[in-house]
Amino acid sequence: MTSPEGGTKRDLVRRHVEDMIGAGLSPHERLPTERELAETLEVNRQTVRGALDELEREGVVYRLQGAGTFVSEARISKSFELTSFSEDMRARNMRPGSQSIDLQVGAAGQTVGYALGLSPREDVVRVRRVRTADDIPICLEESTFAAASVPGLEGGIEGDSLYDDIRQRFGLVAVRADQEIHAVVLDEEQAAALQTPPFSPAFLVRRTTYDARSRPIEYAESVYRGDRYSYQLSITRP
Results as ranks from 00 to 15, higher is better:
92 R>S: 06
96 P>S: 06
96 P>A: 02
97 G>P: 05
97 G>M: 01
98 S>F: 00
99 Q>C: 02
104 Q>H: 10
104 Q>C: 00
110 Q>A: 09
113 G>V: 11
113 G>H: 08
115 A>C: 04
116 L>G: 07
116 L>F: 04
116 L>Q: 07
118 L>S: 04
122 E>V: 05
124 V>E: 08
125 V>L: 07
127 V>E: 04
127 V>K: 03
127 V>F: 06
129 R>L: 08
130 V>L: 06
133 A>K: 13
134 D>N: 15
141 E>F: 12
141 E>C: 01
141 E>V: 01
145 F>G: 00
145 F>N: 00
146 A>R: 13
146 A>C: 02
147 A>C: 07
152 G>C: 10
154 E>N: 14
154 E>W: 11
160 D>L: 08
160 D>F: 02
163 Y>W: 13
165 D>A: 09
169 R>C: 01
170 F>Y: 15
174 A>L: 03
176 R>T: 14
178 D>E: 14
178 D>T: 11
179 Q>I: 08
179 Q>Y: 04
180 E>T: 14
181 I>K: 10
183 A>M: 10
185 V>N: 10
185 V>Q: 12
185 V>W: 09
187 D>Y: 13
188 E>M: 09
195 Q>R: 15
195 Q>D: 12
195 Q>L: 00
198 P>F: 05
198 P>M: 00
201 P>W: 12
204 L>Y: 05
204 L>R: 14
204 L>G: 01
205 V>H: 08
207 R>I: 08
209 T>W: 06
210 Y>W: 07
